[in-house]
Write a protein that binds this DNA or RNA. Structure first.
Length: 793
RNA sequence: AGGCGCGUAUGUCAAUGGUAGACGGCUUCCCUUACAAGGAAGAGGUUGGGGGUUCGAGUCCCUCCGUGCCUACCA
């Protein structure tokens, strides 16, 4: 909880619940009683997974399978009869369980043993005789084709025992020690000691045929790693088939719930539901919801919401069954009731969470308002534990599935790709990362990991986003330093005729970013949201917009133009902070507060209409939605031309080793008048950013000798006269490389255009798009060739 | 044994069948009046191998190699 608060999780803390709270306990008892009354929950004997250390039953999900390098022992059992010496050899990984064997099984079609079916074996080390039975389950190809059957200590054998009505001989107790049934020689021995001894004795008797190395799966308690012992025991079980089929129907017919990412989790979920087994829900632990069942000394069991109800129910039952004596004793208060000491599997109460927290079984307002919920976010290892059980248990008494969407996140691995575990000591402490890099940086780093893919965690990748936070801080600082005269929030209202190109452009870029971010969040594609936000803020807003607006914004004299530029800058920052807020709540709130304090009413006007009366905070502002009419493609294209011009001049400066402090002259030619107008409108910005002493724009230029040149889109050209400074070799190399690149791409494009199949079958837009691109490329190539020619003269 | 996933730049990872990108690292230059946790310019790829479908494949299909996870009642 402390960690969630540090993370800035914006949850309603007043609704914090604990599974053992009274309201939830009531729901658990109610659910249990109703299910018992329907026969869905039953009390009975079964072979369950037992942890000898924790002394409790476990469900299938709470045992971990592990491959284990063990041995396969081949044991000979003598066939009884007629003094003949014949043996049946069985293979086993657990020889100690042979003491509890009550049969040997073979496949009915197995010729080798057909004549022996029905005959009897003398079980070594015991005085027992056991039959040879035939069962389809046995695989003739494995081992010897004969299987020892220990119904009390193996799940398969248990099932086979039921099929053939075999007795159960319990030779291992709940402490994993041999019982007296195992015989004097073995009683009291630990299961592994017993194994050694059994093998030793078989060897002595000449009944150990061979021992081979064998790898097999071993089950461990996921809590304490102790090897599980299958144990016949009386427990509480929940029938799952019917509930599972309802959940399956919801998924198959209506995609309820919907998984994100959809593949492969939907299938993982449905596969498990299809192969579901009954659930052992009782635990012999001290902690948890006590099972609402009461026993009399005479062994009667009653399930009820409380002890009073238990008595009533018992009275009714005794009457119905005509057990007058029991009834009278109960009425006289002579019968003591004892509640079951066992508790419920915590996942059972957790499975009710979605409605137990909202007041069920009462039809509360909360239940009506908040059920079903919208989304459950969890890891894939919890799909069975929680997601499936929640849907099943919820559908039992609720109309709808408990959540519409299930988002499966990746799992954080260590830097070597290993799952983190306390045992391996490779866990990371989120609080330490928060301390080192900040919560915002950590949050956005996690969000940037692609959806559903595991993350190899390295602290240093948080650095990228710590730097991003720093960038946001510094950009905001610049804006705030130049905020005098700005009217935040109104920058882009109603005066578009005074906007510069970069104003129209940043509005377009912002709306595009808002569109992308909203779409990404809608689809739980958080990494795409991060990508859009990062590049919008850093590349578009910081690198270009602030730089282009700087001259107007930072003008010394106050003027309507300066106020306007500042208002637009501040407005864009305010909107950007809103867009960033869900991913970086702390820094955006801090900056937003400073910004809001500049507004006349302290920022109230920024709040979502529903929250106008509340204290201003970015949390209560409306999240920016894209306005399609503001995604101004024309502005984007024009700005691209300006950006290209500036970039190419910078590139020339850098490659020609022009000192940063040194001013250059720039001659720009553009055959197209509109392009000239675009450049002219941004003249002062171009001049400033390229550090030019002079920029001239005309239809065509006379190129001074010793100029570096660059071909631009639409036949335009940038010329930087560098007489005396130019390195002809370098310029030649630079242009050659450029030409190669452009020609290669043009050739590829032309080849594709030359393919009649492409022209016929590809969509028209694609063909036209390529045509345009190839035209531009060939134009550039021509221009560069002319430049090279001029250079060599 | 089945099922699922992954192999892309030196590293970690992106990319509805349509110009292969980001971040880090690397090279060069710059302490320029928001930011050196920064700015500018660069280098770096036959998308694991081989087939196939398609006008077009990192993306779809088959196969092989490598690797990870989940499920399972072969003793």
């Amino acid at each position: 909880m402390q960690q969630m608060r540090r993370e800035g999780a914006s949850v309603d803390w007043s609704r914090q619940r604990f599974t053992m709270d009274e309201g939830l306990s009531r729901a658990v008892r109610e659910f249990f009683v109703r299910c018992y009354e329907e026969g869905l929950i039953y009390h009975g004997e079964g072979l369950i997974s037992w942890c000898p250390k924790d002394q409790t039953a476990l469900s299938d999900l709470e045992v971990e399978k592990e491959t284990n390098a063990g041995k396969l022992y081949y044991l000979r059992y003598p066939v009884k009869g007629n003094g003949e010496t014949r043996f049946v050899t069985v293979a086993t990984t657990r020889p100690e369980t042979m003491l509890g064997d009550t049969a040997v099984a073979v496949n009915p079609d197995d010729e080798r043993y057909r004549d022996l079916v029905g005959s009897v074996l003398e079980l070594p080390l015991t005085s027992r005789e056991i039959p040879i039975i035939a069962d389809e389950f046995v695989d003739p190809a494995f081992g010897t084709g004969a299987v020892k059957v220990t119904p009390a200590h193996d799940p398969n054998d248990y099932a086979m025992g039921e099929r053939h009505k075999l007795p159960q001989v319990v030779v291992i107790d709940k402490y994993a020690r041999m019982t007296s049934e195992a015989g004097e020689e073995f009683a009291g021995l630990d299961r592994y000691k017993a194994r050694e001894k059994v093998v030793e004795r078989f060897d002595e008797l000449g009944l150990l045929e061979k021992t081979v190395d064998y790898e097999f799966a071993i089950s461990r308690c996921d809590r304490c790693r102790t090897v599980i012992e299958p144990l016949v025991s009386t427990q509480w079980f929940c029938r799952m088939k019917e509930m599972a089929s309802r959940a399956l129907e919801a998924e198959n017919a209506r995609q309820e719930p919907k998984f994100a990412p959809q593949n492969p989790w939907t299938k993982v979920y449905t596969d498990w539901l299809e192969n579901i087994h009954d659930w052992c829900i009782s635990r012999q632990l001290w902690w948890g919801h006590r099972i609402p069942a009461w026993y009399t000394e005479a062994g009667d069991v009653v399930v009820a919401r409380n002890e009073d109800e238990a008595r009533e129910k018992l009275l009714r039952e005794f009457s119905e069954r005509g057990q007058a004596e029991k009834r009278e004793r109960l009425e006289r208060g002579e019968t003591k009731l004892k509640q079951d000491d066992d508790v419920l599997d915590t996942w059972f109460s957790s499975g009710l969470w979605c409605f137990s927290t909202l007041g069920w079984p009462h039809e509360t307002n909360d239940l009506k308002a908040f059920y079903p919920t919208s989304v459950l976010v969890t890891g894939r290892d919890i799909i069975f534990f929680w997601v499936a059980r929640m849907t099943m248990l919820s559908l039992k008494f609720m109309e709808a599935i408990p959540f519409r969407d299930v988002v499966i996140t990746g799992i954080i691995l260590d830097k070597h790709g290993q799952k983190m575990s306390k045992m391996k000591g490779n866990t990371i402490d989120p609080l330490a990362v928060f301390d080192k890099y900040g919560v915002d940086a950590t949050r956005i780093t996690l969000a940037a990991a692609s959806a559903g893919t595991d993350v190899r965690w390295r602290d240093d990748q948080v650095e990228t986003y710590r730097n991003f936070a720093n960038k946001i801080w510094n950009a905001a600082r610049f804006c705030l330093m130049n905020s005098e005269g700005a009217r935040v929030g109104t920058g882009f209202e109603g005066e578009s005729q005074t906007w510069t190109l970069h104003d129209r452009w940043i509005v377009a870029r912002f709306n595009r970013a808002a569109q992308d971010v909203n779409a990404a969040l809608e689809n739980y594609q958080f990494h795409e949201a991060v990508y859009s936000l990062y590049h919008f803020f850093w590349d578009d807003f910081c690198d270009w917009y602030i730089e282009l607006a700087k001259a107007d914004v930072a003008a010394v004299e106050r003027s309507p133009a300066r106020d306007g530029a500042r208002s637009r800058l501040m407005t864009m920052l305010e909107q950007s902070l809103r867009l960033l807020h869900p991913l970086m709540p702390f820094i955006t709130e801090e900056l937003w507060q400073r910004l809001a304090s500049l507004a006349d009413d302290g920022g109230s006007e920024f709040l979502h209409p529903a929250y106008r009366e509340m204290r201003p905070t970015v949390m209560l502002t409306a999240y920016p939605q894209a306005r399609a009419e503001l995604i101004d493609e024309k502005a984007e294209n024009e700005m691209n031309a300006v950006i290209e011009l500036i970039s190419r001049v910078r590139s020339i400066r850098s490659e020609m080793n022009v000192k940063p402090g040194e001013n250059v002259r720039i001659l720009v030619s553009a055959p197209d008048e509109k392009t000239r107008d675009v450049f002219t409108a941004s003249l002062s910005q171009i001049k400033r950013i390229t550090r030019a002493s002079e920029v001239t724009i005309s239809e065509s230029v006379t190129v001074p000798p010793g100029s570096a040149r660059a071909a631009l889109a639409g036949g335009a050209e940038a010329v930087v006269p560098l007489e005396g400074l130019i390195d002809f070799e370098r310029e030649n190399g630079r242009l050659q490389r450029e030409l190669e690149k452009v020609e290669a791409e043009a050739t590829r494009g032309e080849a594709q255009l030359g393919n009649s199949q492409f022209r016929e079958r590809a969509p028209i837009e694609k063909v036209e798009e390529l045509q345009k691109r190839v035209e531009d490329l060939t134009g550039r190539a021509q221009a560069i060739r002319r430049m090279l020619e001029a250079l060599s003269r």
